[in-house]
C-alpha cells in the first residue's frame, strides 16, 4: 500500500532538512526538480539545502529545472532499503532501466552531490506509488 503523497512529502522534507551529509554542504543547493513516478508527480523546490516546498499536485505548466521520469515499479525499486542492481541510483537506472533524465541537466550536474544524497533518502521514506 503506497503512502499518501502529502504524508510522503512531509517525511521527505523532514529527512532532507535533517540530513547531516546534505546540510554540511547545503549552501547553494537551490533548484527544483520533478519526480515523475507515472502514477504520481511531485515538484521539489530546494533552497540552500532545505526543502522550500513540495508541489504534490503539479499543473501542466508548473516550472522546474529538470525531471526524472520512470515507471511506478522503478520508483518502488528505488525506494527499497537495499535496492537491486541497476535500481541503486539515477545513473544506473538511466543506463540500464527505464529512467529518463530530462530538462536542464546542467542544473542537475551543478547540484549532483547533494541531489544524489537526497535521492537515496527515498530508501528511508519510500515513494507514494
Amino acid at each position: 500500500m503506497a503512502v499518501d503523497v502529502k504524508t510522503w512529502a512531509s517525511k521527505f522534507k523532514n529527512l532532507t532538512d535533517n540530513d547531516e551529509t546534505i546540510q554540511c554542504m547545503g549552501k547553494y543547493y537551490t533548484c527544483s526538480f520533478l519526480y515523475d513516478m507515472t502514477d504520481c508527480k511531485v515538484i521539489v523546490e530546494m533552497h540552500d539545502g532545505k526543502v522550500k516546498n513540495i508541489n504534490t499536485d503539479p499543473a501542466p505548466l508548473d516550472p522546474y529545472d529538470f525531471a526524472l521520469r520512470a515507471s511506478a515499479q522503478t520508483w518502488r525499486e528505488f525506494a527499497k532499503p537495499m535496492p537491486k542492481p541497476m535500481f541503486h541510483g539515477i545513473w544506473a537506472a538511466s543506463f540500464c532501466e527505464d529512467l529518463k533524465l530530462e530538462g536542464n541537466l546542467l542544473v542537475l550536474m551543478q547540484n549532483l552531490r547533494n541531489f544524489t544524497v537526497q535521492f537515496e533518502l527515498l530508501r528511508k521514506c519510500g515513494v507514494p506509488v
Binding site: M82, W91, L106, M109, L112, T116
Partner: peptide, 25 residues
C-alpha cells in the same frame, strides 16, 4: 562533456557521477 563542464563543479560531478557505480552494501 559533463566531466569537465565549466559551468559545473567538475570535482563533484566526477565524484558523484560515479557514486552509483558502487554497491549500496
Amino acid at each position: 562533456d559533463w566531466w569537465r563542464h565549466p559551468h559545473a563543479n567538475a570535482a563533484q560531478v566526477c565524484a558523484s557521477g560515479v557514486w552509483d557505480l558502487m554497491a549500496p552494501q
